[in-house]
């Protein structure tokens, strides 16, 4: 119950932050989901393992995956989904506590809480970077594969057209098969080939 309730709270809070960052209106409702899922993962793992840094790291990874997915389906830069989503994870509470500790001249506590804040920030950026670079690598591979397949199909087609020994019926059959193959290729790889809206870190 509390998990579901917190999911809803995180969803609404993320939409609020999204408005602050001037996210396009049509993606507003979707950009809430990245933050909501990210916070839920954070919440559950933090409860189970009692480690804020690990929970933040995993939450950032989940958030990046969801953001990438939405970026591809919506044809938007993935920042639109990720930036509002990371705000609930950001070490605002830790920064505040650091500041209070400095005000009370309790520098040991300040160092403790401050390093926690830095670790949380590192966990967020580390999680994001790992997912995004792995995805960029996979996308490159898939694009190469799609290109190879396209070339193969074209070669097959040329061969079929030029082949004189084949009897016409069989040729027709083969041709249909190739067309089907081409259709599937388009279904699965078209958006990969044309899309570069999301991350491509490794140039």
């Amino acid at each position: 119950m509390t998990v579901a309730l917190k999911f809803v709270y995180a969803y609404i809070a993320t939409i609020g932050f999204a408005v602050l960052f001037q996210v396009p209106k049509k993606t507003l409702l979707r950009s809430g989901f990245a933050g909501a899922f990210g916070w839920s993962v954070f919440n559950i793992i933090n409860q189970e393992f009692n480690s804020v840094v690990v929970a933040t790291f995993l939450a950032a990874m989940v958030l990046a995956m969801i953001g990438e997915r939405f970026a591809r389906t919506e044809k938007q830069p993935f920042t639109v989904f990720i930036i509002p989503g990371i705000v609930p994870l950001v070490p605002g509470v830790a920064l505040y506590n650091t500041m209070i500790a400095i005000l009370e001249e309790n520098y040991n506590l300040a160092a403790e809480v401050g390093s926690e804040a830095i670790l949380i920030a590192l966990a967020i950026s580390g999680g994001l970077t790992i997912v995004l670079s792995v995805n960029a690598y996979l996308r490159k591979k898939r694009m190469a594969l799609a290109e190879k397949r396209a070339i193969k199909i074209q070669e097959k087609k040329n061969k079929l057209v030029n082949d004189q020994d084949l009897d016409p019926e069989e040729q027709q059959k083969e041709m249909e098969k190739t067309k089907l193959e081409e259709y599937y290729k388009e279904q699965f790889f078209d958006d990969e080939v044309q899309d570069y809206s999301s991350d491509e870190e490794e140039q």
Binding site: V90, P91, L95, A121, S125, L128, T129
Partner: peptide, 20 residues
Amino acid sequence: GIMVMVPGVAITNGLRDTIA
């Protein structure tokens, strides 16, 4: 109140740029 102003995005983007 300060969560709205906190430069979390700047910190995270800065770290991401540095890592990249």
